[in-house]
Design a protein around this nucleic acid. Sequence first.
DNA 1: CCTGGCACTCTTCGCACGCGAGTGCCAGAC
DNA 2: GTCTGGCACTCGCGTGCGAAGAGTGCCAGG
Lengths: 338, 338
Amino acid sequence: MLSERRLQVLRAIVQDYVGTEEPVGSKALTERHKLGVSPATVRNDMAALEEEGFIAQPHTSAGRIPTDKGYRLFVDKLAGVKPMSPPERRAIQNFLEGAVDLDDVVARTVRLLAQLTRQVAVVQYPSLTRSTVRHVELLSLAPARLMLVLITDTGRVEQRMVDCPAPFGEASLADLRARLNSRVAGRRFADVPSLVEDLPEAFEADDRGTVSTVLSTLLETLVEENEEQLMIGGTANLTRFGHDFPLTIRPVLEALEEQVVLLKLLGEAKDPGVTVRIGHENAHEGLNSTSVVSVGYGSGGEAVAKLGVVGPTRMDYPGTMGAVRAVARYVGQILAES
Amino acid sequence: MLSERRLQVLRAIVQDYVGTEEPVGSKALTERHKLGVSPATVRNDMAALEEEGFIAQPHTSAGRIPTDKGYRLFVDKLAGVKPMSPPERRAIQNFLEGAVDLDDVVARTVRLLAQLTRQVAVVQYPSLTRSTVRHVELLSLAPARLMLVLITDTGRVEQRMVDCPAPFGEASLADLRARLNSRVAGRRFADVPSLVEDLPEAFEADDRGTVSTVLSTLLETLVEENEEQLMIGGTANLTRFGHDFPLTIRPVLEALEEQVVLLKLLGEAKDPGVTVRIGHENAHEGLNSTSVVSVGYGSGGEAVAKLGVVGPTRMDYPGTMGAVRAVARYVGQILAES
DNA sequence: CCTGGCACTCTTCGCACGCGAGTGCCAGAC
DNA sequence: GTCTGGCACTCGCGTGCGAAGAGTGCCAGG
């Protein structure tokens, strides 16, 4: 077990390193933080912390820098979440309130997060699976060609072409549209499959094939994984990473372009609160020298999607966590209002 | 006027520099290209080319590198567009044909362009203003709240909320929907305003306010500038830029995040063929050390949007132009089919 | 258990030096 | 006139060395 003072030393190391981006030595520490002990004592503590794997030295005779494990301890035990100041809160709210539609909300959220944290922001579109159906629309484009439009309570719209096995009359179309909506409007996506199961039976034999096709297209739309879209921004902030970029920045940019990777990354965070994944805790190799701070957000009490930021492990965790949490909260409010 | 040989020297310099990324000297030139003259002669030619501003030396006693003006001459007079090889063409077609909807087409195009050119790809969504209306749908969400859905011939779907000044009955709604579609379906966006102008007059006085509101929302949707969306990809290729990145890459990333800037950039290229803007020819400062190769694409003979790549001025122009042109052609075909 | 002192290790920086690539210019040949 | 070979010159770059500085580990004493 580490003594109280050693924890304070670790905290001081993290804070200083985050501030200066340079390895921090024992002398500098005693000067900047009132630890009440001499550098020599701090050196002993540092030796112990290094022994335990919380800090490391890039090379002999340089200061110490925190390891992933050190940051982990810092985040879990040594620092809280720094709340946003009232002016900041107002700014967030004002900025988000100007949004005109869902795309705009997401776009603004990305910009905002990137600006607040000066890091790369990632915002997932509200997921289809957890939201509810507002309306399903069917349009006839050609005798045997329909367009299915799905509108969700979060304002998201999805459309799909449906090629029918047989021509489908306007009357049948109106019938199907009405039945479909009376059954699924206002219901959660997860419940839709069982609600429409027996729908083909209500139609003439000629039309059943088309009805089934439409339904299966609808169900596909509901679960389709690639519909989990996301938006990223603030990549220019990557240039603040370090001085040794090419090697650092490249894999990160590559990872960011792989939406699948990012979605998995966000998806892994099950915590109801703000989740922090540090360095090697991220499964993806390219992100081994970055930390991901994420949180769920949603219009009601329930989270329908995630948002977060990706930055160097050497980041201001309390501030970043505060910003992420605050933005998620306000985005949730905005979604609830619309 | 420059002699034929001097032009060849310039061409050789550009080709070598693009290949090696290093300033090229007179001796190396005579060795790699059969110019039939001695290094000394080449040196004289180089002096002349430098005098005219086509090439420059980074510092005394280094080889020469082309200037923006040099690249311009190269692109205009010294090199053609390198056609894609048949296998490449097949690969492009195969890759694009798997797309399921417009978003997917655009996403695939971006990936493809980024891979082919190993540069940053930018693809603009088919512009609304030049396409035609396939269908307009009106949904009643609440007594005084409608949703307007616009479907274009390129498969794009736009939706807008409409708050009505007065409740609007289902009958009126169906009436408006039918009238609207009979007038604008299949028509070009530009023609829509005049086609719907007198529509409110066909309705009862109570409903006219709502009809007008719907119409103005529709017209807004048609012209709204922020609807000119685009998708970018391949930013990881920026890391291949040079060795001095931080300064080079940062402004480029920033510029890429400013969609407005990019749209303007693409919009400026009026040429019917492939357009190349080199270095300082780009209005935006952050892109002063990059070149933009763009071209319009469209489902019919007419261009409805642009696509292109952003890369270092030191790029393989013939190859890049060939790739951009080929991709645009195939995307056009795909759009025409759907 | 803390502290001051001391020797030791490494990195970083500045500087001088030599090498090599490349140039510009000139006199002479075709 | 144009091209060529030769030659002196310029500079950037890599190398080696020495001094400086930061930081450490260890130890003896309070």
